[in-house]
């Protein structure tokens, strides 16, 4: 028997919104430690990895590991039936071919349940090595979203250049060029407004706007985003979920032909 109850059900809605652009289907791996998911987008260019720790749920029971393969478009249809202040419970029997979502209003006066068919997905799991990154940038997630959106008007790619002083995002296209520079700024009133750079050595890497824009669907999940970069290895874009886990996206830099 698997059962996970989240009073803050809106969080689950946001998690789904953050991955459904990239993934049509995925397997939610449920274990005693929590729920995890790892999947590549259909073109195998980017990877999504997320973790929701069991202690972040208000009630969590997982007698044995279960793999819940889901069509995420269908899951999103069901999640749309939950209000933002609903309590959400996910339930599945061992070896079941369906999953049940229960939505309760905070006053318990309305309880809805939706049963969805599960899929048997042939999932490839990739091992992600621990990496010491040359640059780690922490910045407001809304700012990152804004920059990705703005620069994708200029070109298909964004060059992210990071030094100790700051981080620069650049794009070039038929109409001209655009640059956005952010200075390191840890002395702000609110922690979430800080731009903090941990640099071992400077990097300058090129990434596809299309994927960066998809990653920013996770913006509502966290006030800050963390970009980890090294030459010739995939960028990690991480959104930390308070007391719960993370959503991470991996994207390899473009290579000059």
């Amino acid at each position: 028997m698997f059962e996970a109850r989240l009073v803050q059900g809106a969080l689950l809605k946001k998690v789904l919104e953050s991955i459904k652009d990239l993934l049509n289907e995925a397997t939610w791996e449920c274990a005693a430690t929590g729920i995890s998911l790892q999947a590549m987008d259909s073109s195998h260019v980017s990877l999504v990895a997320l973790n929701l720790r069991s202690d972040g749920f208000d009630k969590y029971r997982c007698d044995r590991n279960v793999s819940l393969g889901m069509n995420l478009t269908n899951m999103a249809k069901i999640m749309k039936c939950a209000s933002n202040d609903d309590v959400i419970t996910i339930k599945a029997q061992d070896d079941a071919d369906t999953v049940t979502f229960v939505f309760e209003t905070p006053n318990q006066e309305k309880i809805s349940d939706y049963e969805m068919k599960l899929m048997n997905l042939d999932t490839e799991h990739l091992g992600i090595p621990d990496t010491d990154y040359s640059c780690i940038v922490k910045m407001p997630s809304v700012e990152f979203q804004r920059i990705c959106r703005d620069l994708s008007q200029i070109g298909d790619s964004v060059v992210i250049s990071c030094t100790k002083e700051g981080v620069k995002f650049s794009a070039a296209g038929d109409l001209g060029t655009g640059n956005v520079k952010l200075a390191q700024n840890a002395n702000v009133d609110k922690e979430e407004e800080a731009v903090v750079i941990e640099m071992q050595e400077p990097v300058s890497l090129t990434f596809a706007c299309r994927y960066l824009n998809s990653f920013t669907k996770a913006t509502p999940l966290a006030p800050q985003v963390q970009l980890s970069m090294s030459s010739d290895v995939p960028l990690v874009v991480e959104y930390k979920l308070e007391d719960m886990g993370y959503v991470r996206y991996y994207l390899a830099p473009k290579i000059e032909d």
Partner: peptide, 14 residues
């Protein structure tokens, strides 16, 4: 021009 490598070429299957 630049090429977009696949993520699967960076990480090993487990």
């Amino acid at each position: 021009t630049s090429a977009q490598p696949k993520i699967s070429s960076y990480f090993q299957k487990t």
